[in-house]
Structures are given as structure tokens and as C-alpha cells.
Design a protein around this nucleic acid. Structure first.
Length: 758
DNA sequence: TGTACTTAAGTTTTT
DNA sequence: CTTAAGTACA
């Protein structure tokens, strides 16, 4: 029977077959974490220890949840649809839909994504006359989310100073506004569920009895609230099986607490932690590099990956003169690897921040290499799609002010800022929604008529929403709202129209699956079973789907394409060849992380994650200068490159190219070329092209290395010709003093001033 | 009121 | 370099 146990190694087997007790599995990268998790569930079900309905499995991403379900149905002849396997947010949504009354939410409450949340914060801040200089919306948003993720309502936050007090007051107003509108943000889904269960002992007892086994994926990424949530559901009799890797904790910025691992061990009396250290993914040199780098972190739970496979190839390190060179190098190498038989889809190009993808994309596009960017603008986040969704949201819940302000005057229909302001003032006085006061007809004249027309459109849609099938409802909405007409007339509106058609397609698919009870929509069926008409149910489910899963399943997966993504979104994936680009101080590790304590360690874990994505080939590159916001920035090699033991690496040396500022760079090209980019050879297959130069050639940039020397003639866009007479600082802080012919003497920050050698 | 233009500003990672 | 916000004008 248990043939799926046969393939496990001793540690994996131990974890899977643990007796009924809470456990922490410390699973290194590539050690078969998902396999252990799913096999554990299959094992428990097959041995009759628990029924499928008694399992609660939580992940962080929709992809991980889907993966788990797929593997489970391959292992067991059961219908996985009724199982509670999903993301924290998805499962909370499910609970809140089922118990919306107890949770104090309207039937068709809607979910704000972070964009929606930010516009609500902005709108509210403006209405209250909050000083945007002192309280940037972004900061207010973060404050609110941080509080919620710590499980704190506004009345529970300790405000020591006036500044915090103001933020807390805003937090309270924000929450009040959300409940008036009947919307919840991401963090609210969790907090609200937590409160729902802690306030209803009967309900809690019901779920505690139901979920005999709780399994948590990526446990190191749980925040305080999620941990309390797990602990509460487990109760005194529950059994938690947590799988995680402290070395891969990279989400502290959104509240993840590595400390939860120790908490778990303490709270649940876990005596021994099972460690999975055998790696089935990467070859030896790659693993050695990962181990060496992560060893610089302190306070680790301790783990060393090993592989039964050979050492494999050395890491390739490339020091480019600038970002263009770096991109060109990657393009050449990708081509060569592809000629050698590695599929493009088996290669990944990783970067620290999304901004870096543009130049890489540019080079790839020019070279005719097909590529796919993950995590860019997702389908449901495109503006035309958001506009369309806003109409649908209003059709489901007219009190959704965020949706109202988004489309009241889009397409333009003569409702100006003044009218909206009037509505907002009235809404604030009467504590009603914008739609509510709009109906009252307080705006007079031409604008009033426009507003009435808008209200009529929404009312019409609301009626249609009761009976029409989702795709037809969207068709009608596109007509009545004039969105179709508007984008049809816009000069580059064709793409947008196509996306709107795509939305109809998505809706058709979703509605079909929902009606036939198929995955993934079928899973949501239970969530909304006690609401409104069948068509309203589908609408609500579709809108949740759009917020919670903003288009992960994007098309194009069938095509063979190079995979571009941030290191964060690469977590959990693996590739034959991996390129990690932009290994410069300030970029990776990111400068913002250097201020926070523990920031560098988190960046190092990020690097660890990046390295362990690779199976056989790993490239690490950095650039001496990089265009950022249209200005060159001069970088020095990342400490992480220097933490890789030199014997694991080969440095790639390319011919010299002229530097953009007209002087010989100290970057790359200090030795003669061992190959030429123009050469017709397949470089990746040619061992001669790699040299291992003396380390000294790649030391960090020295403080006296400035792009401009004293005495040099320069030109500034506004100030004209001048001569450099002094400089101070380096890197991002570098400033030069320039005496201009006509404008006197000025200090200029190199980071900002457009200074050209002249 | 809406549009077309200018200017300023900002840029980590995401369910 | 892109995007957002602000201003002038029709």
C-alpha cells in the first residue's frame, strides 16, 4: 500500500511517519519539502488516521496550494476538492464568507488589494486634511498593515508620541471607513478571522475538532498573527506539522517572524526537530557556495546541505563595466547554453528588484530571445481590468467607495473633482457611502444629471447581476459603462480592449468551472453557498478570485522562454541554469536593508535562496556602473560575491570596451580577452574562455576612484561649462565641486547632477 | 470640466 | 527613464 513511502530517504520517512504529535521539520532548499508535506497528508489519510476533511494545510502562495493538491490527487484516489488546502488568505476568505454574519461583514464583502488599499488611504488622508509631507500615504498604509499583522486593532496600539498617536487615529478611521464600505484588506482577512474565532467559542471548538491535523508550509514566513491563528485552531488537542527553513526566511518586511520557529518548539513541546539536509537539486560547487555564504549569518538553527551527486561545474563570476555589458554577457551566455541543449525555460535570470528587469528585457528583445517576466503587472492589476472590476464591484456592493471613485468619472462623463468632493463631504456628514449620497441628489445642475446617469448605470448593472451569467454581465457592463467605446476610440486602446476580452474569457472559464464544481473555482463554491442569487454568488467568488489570485496562471507557460523574476518570486522554483545579476553593494544587498538591523542577514538569506535555485550552472554578475533613473550610479562589488570561496569560482574575462564616461574602467577587462563576443564559437562549451585571474584584479573600488578628476572639464545641463575643483565622498554620496564659467561655484551630488565630461 | 502639457519625484522584496 | 501630480488653456 504505502508505495509512496518507498522513495523517501530515512529523514523524510521519519518525518512522514511521525506519530500523532506536533513537529517541526527543518527542510533545507531542495531537500524534498513539498514531497514530505504531501506524503505526510497522504500517509495520514491512507492509514485512516484522519479523513480528508480533518486536514488543514496552509501555504503562502496559490501556486504551492495547487501543487500540493495536484500531488495529493496523484497519490490518493480521493476527491481533493472538499479539502482545506489553501493560502492563509484564501482559507480566511472561505471562513469569513461562510460566517459573514458572525464576522460582522456584509454578504458580498469585497477584498482590497494593495493598490485599492493605497487609494483608500490616499482618499481618506486627503479628506481629513492629513499633511502628506509628514504622513506619506505609503507609510500610513504600512503602519496599518504592520499593526494588523501584529494582531493589533487601533485601540490596542500603544502610542508613545504624538506622531504615533496621529497614525493610530488614522488607523481607526481607516477601519471605520472599511466597515462602512463593506471591504476588507489582505491583513484584515486574517485579523477578522482570528477575532471571529476567538469571540465564538462554539465555532472555534467546531473547527478545532474538525481539523485534527494542521500542516503549515514555509513556516518561517509566518507572521505573529498567523502563528496565533495556527495556535488557536490547534487548541490543546490539535497537531501541527510545520515545515520550514530559517535560512530561507525572506519576508520579514511583511511581518514574518523567524522567532515563530522557536515559539512553536516551546509552545507545542516539540522534543526533536527533524532535519532534511540532503539536497536533490544542486551540484556540489553550487551547494558549497550556498553553505559558505549562509554560514556568515548568526543565530541559525543550523543545517548543512549536502548532495550525493558530484561537484559539478564551477560558478561563473562576471564583472561587467556597466549594466549594458552585463546584459550583453547574459544574452550571449543564454544563447550558448541554449545551443548546448538547455531549454530556455530551464534557465532563470534573477534580480533583486523589479526595476532591473527593463534593461535586461531590452537586450533580450534585441537578441530575439523569448522570455517571460514574472511578477510584473499582473492581469487583474491592469488599469482597464481594474476599471472593469470596479463596475462589477459596484454591481455587487454599491457602498464600495473605492470602486465608486475609480469609475464615477471614467470614462469621462462630466463628473468632476468638485462633484466628487461634494459627495465626499456629504458622505462624511451623513456617514453614508458615496453611492448613497449620490442618490440623494445633492449635486445640482449639469453635474447632478451626469451623476444621476451614472447611478442609473450602476443600478441597471446591479439588477442584471441577479440574473445574468457572469460573461454576459461583463459584456453588458462594458457597453453600459462605455468602457468599450472609450478604449475603442483611444489611439492605443486595442491592447486594452483585448485585455477586456480576456477578462470575459476568464469569466467564462470561471463560471463554467464554478457551475460544474471543478477546480479551482469549485473550491470556492462552498465559500459563498449561503449568499444571494446563484449569479451573485458567482460574481462574488470571481471578484475574490481576482483579488486573491491576481493572475498567477498567466498564459505562455507552454512556450519555451527564458524566465525573468525577482529573487523573491524565485523561491520554491528550480532551474538548470541560473543567472543572478546586479551583485553590487546597495543593490544586492539593497541599501534600504543596511539601515535595519538584521537587514544584511535577510539579504544574505535572499542570496542563499537565489543560489540554491540552480541545478548545474550558476552565473553571478555585477556592473561597475548602472543607469538608475536616467543617471549613472557607480557600484562596488557585493560582499556576497566575496563570501563565495574563490576555489568554487571561475571569473570570466571579456575584452575591453570603452567606458561611458570616457575613461578606462577598473571594471572587468583588465586582462586581455580569452575570447571575443563576435567569435562564432559556442562559448559555453569552450573551457578556454574562462580564466581565473588574480583576486586582486577584482578588489573593491578604491575611495579615490572617481568618475571625475580634479581639473577635469565638465558640462552641466543647466549651468553650462565648468571645471572640477574638488570632490568628497564616494559611491552614492559622492559630490564634486565645480566652478562654472557663468554660474559660479557649486557642489553637485553625482547621484543627481547630470554631469558630462566635456 | 477635460485635456494637453510641464514639472517633480521616486523607485525592495508581495499574499 | 518612467509615473504621478500640477498647471494652463480650450
Amino acid at each position: 500500500m504505502n508505495d509512496f513511502l518507498a522513495r523517501l530517504n530515512p529523514e523524510q520517512l521519519q518525518a512522514v511517519t511521525l506519530p500523532r504529535q506536533s513537529a517541526l521539520i527543518l527542510a533545507g532548499a531542495g531537500s524534498g519539502k513539498t514531497r514530505v508535506l504531501t506524503t505526510r497528508i497522504a500517509y495520514l489519510i491512507q492509514t485512516g488516521e484522519v479523513s480528508p476533511a480533518g486536514v488543514l494545510a496552509v501555504t503562502f502562495t496559490n501556486k504551492a496550494a495547487r501543487e500540493m493538491l495536484t500531488r495529493l490527487s496523484a497519490m490518493l484516489p480521493i476527491n481533493t476538492r472538499g479539502m482545506w488546502v489553501g493560502t492563509f488568505h484564501g482559507l480566511c476568505n472561505r471562513l469569513l464568507r461562510t460566517h459573514h454574519r458572525d464576522a460582522g461583514l456584509p454578504q458580498l464583502f469585497q477584498i482590497l488589494d494593495s493598490g485599492d488599499q493605497q487609494s483608500l488611504v490616499k482618499r481618506l488622508a486627503k479628506a481629513q486634511g492629513v499633511d502628506e509631507e509628514k504622513f506619506p500615504p505609503r507609510q500610513l498604509q504600512n503602519f496599518i498593515n504592520n499593526c494588523k499583522e501584529a494582531g493589533l486593532r487601533a485601540n490596542a496600539v500603544e502610542a508613545g508620541d504624538e506622531f504615533t498617536r496621529r497614525m493610530v487615529a488614522f488607523y481607526a478611521d481607516y477601519d471605520a471607513q472599511c466597515s462602512r464600505e463593506g471591504v476588507v484588506d489582505f491583513a484584515e482577512l486574517l485579523l477578522r478571522t482570528f477575532e471571529l474565532l476567538s469571540r465564538n467559542p462554539d465555532l472555534l471548538a467546531h473547527y478545532q475538532q474538525r481539523f485534527r491535523y494542521i500542516l503549515v508550509d514555509e513556516f518561517q514566513d509566518t507572521n505573529k498573527l498567523q502563528y496565533r491563528w495556527i495556535k488557536m485552531l490547534a487548541g490543546t488537542s490539535g497537531c501541527v506539522f510545520a515545515v520550514g527553513d530559517d535560512d530561507q526566511s525572506i519576508y520579514r518586511f511583511r511581518g514574518a517572524e523567524i522567532g515563530n520557529m522557536n515559539e512553536l518548539v516551546r509552545d507545542f513541546g516539540i522534543t526533536d526537530v527533524v532535519k532534511l539536509e540532503q539536497n536533490y537539486r544542486s551540484q556540489g560547487h553550487i551547494l558549497d557556495a550556498a553553505n559558505a555564504i549562509i554560514a556568515h549569518n548568526k543565530g541559525r538553527l543550523g543545517k548543512n546541505l549536502w548532495t550525493a551527486e558530484g561537484k559539478g561545474e564551477a560558478l561563473r563570476i562576471y564583472a561587467a563595466a556597466n549594466d549594458d555589458e552585463e546584459a550583453r554577457f547574459i544574452v550571449d551566455e543564454v544563447k550558448a547554453l541554449n545551443r548546448d541543449g538547455i531549454a530556455l525555460s530551464g534557465m532563470a535570470l534573477l534580480y533583486r528588484s523589479n526595476a532591473q528587469s527593463r534593461i535586461l528585457e531590452h537586450s533580450l528583445f534585441r537578441a530575439g530571445i523569448s522570455y517571460r517576466v514574472y511578477g510584473g503587472l499582473r492581469f487583474f492589476e491592469r488599469q482597464e481590468v481594474k476599471h472593469a472590476l470596479a463596475y462589477l464591484r459596484l454591481a455587487g456592493n454599491a457602498d464600495d467607495d473605492t470602486a465608486f471613485t475609480r469609475v464615477a468619472n471614467f470614462p469621462p462623463r462630466g463628473i468632476g473633482t468638485r462633484s466628487i468632493e461634494q459627495l465626499q463631504e456629504a458622505a462624511e456628514r451623513g456617514m453614508g457611502s458615496l453611492m448613497h449620497v449620490a442618490r440623494a441628489g445633492i449635486v445640482s445642475g449639469r453635474s447632478g444629471a451626469s451623476l444621476a446617469a451614472f447611478v442609473a448605470v450602476i443600478d441597471g448593472l446591479r439588477q442584471s447581476a441577479e440574473t445574468l451569467r457572469l460573461p454576459e454581465l461583463i459584456e453588458e457592463m462594458l457597453e453600459r459603462s462605455h468602457l468599450k467605446e472609450h478604449y475603442g476610440a483611444e489611439k492605443d486602446g486595442q491592447d486594452r480592449l483585448e485585455n477586456l476580452h480576456e477578462l470575459i474569457n476568464a469569466a467564462t472559464l470561471f463560471a463554467d468551472e464554478f457551475e460544474h464544481g471543478l477546480e479551482p473555482a469549485g473550491e470556492a463554491q462552498e465559500d459563498v453557498a449561503n449568499l444571494g442569487t446563484p449569479q451573485q454568488q458567482i460574481l462574488a467568488a470571481f471578484l475574490s478570485h481576482a483579488s486573491l489570485e491576481a493572475g498567477e496562471h498567466e498564459a505562455g507557460t507552454g512556450e519555451d522562454a527564458l524566465q525573468l523574476m525577482t529573487v523573491h518570486s524565485a523561491k520554491g522554483l528550480e532551474f538548470s541554469a541560473v543567472f543572478i545579476s546586479g551583485l553590487e553593494e546597495g543593490l544586492f544587498p539593497h541599501e534600504n536593508s543596511m539601515l535595519e538591523d538584521g537587514g544584511i542577514e535577510e539579504e544574505r538569506r535572499l542570496m542563499y535562496v537565489a543560489i540554491t535555485r540552480a541545478r548545474t550552472r550558476l552565473y553571478v554578475s555585477y556592473a561597475g556602473s548602472r543607469m538608475l533613473h536616467g543617471q549613472p550610479r557607480y557600484g562596488i562589488v557585493s560582499r556576497f560575491v566575496e563570501e563565495i570561496p574563490p576555489q568554487l569560482c571561475k571569473w570570466i574575462v571579456l575584452p575591453e570596451r570603452p567606458a561611458p564616461w570616457g575613461r578606462t574602467p577598473k571594471w572587468g577587462g583588465t586582462e586581455s580577452a580569452s575570447w571575443s563576443t563576435g567569435g562564432g564559437r559556442a562559448p559555453a562549451a569552450d573551457p578556454d574562455r574562462y580564466r581565473t585571474p588574480k583576486r586582486s584584479g577584482f578588489e573593491r573600488q578604491r575611495p579615490d576612484e572617481q568618475p571625475f578628476a580634479v581639473g577635469q572639464n565638465v558640462r552641466h545641463e543647466k549651468f553650462g561649462e565648468g571645471v572640477v575643483i574638488d570632490f568628497e565622498g564616494r559611491g552614492l554620496d559622492a559630490r564634486v565641486q565645480v566652478r562654472f564659467a557663468t554660474q559660479g561655484t557649486k557642489w553637485l551630488a553625482l547621484q543627481y547632477a547630470k554631469l558630462v565630461a566635456g
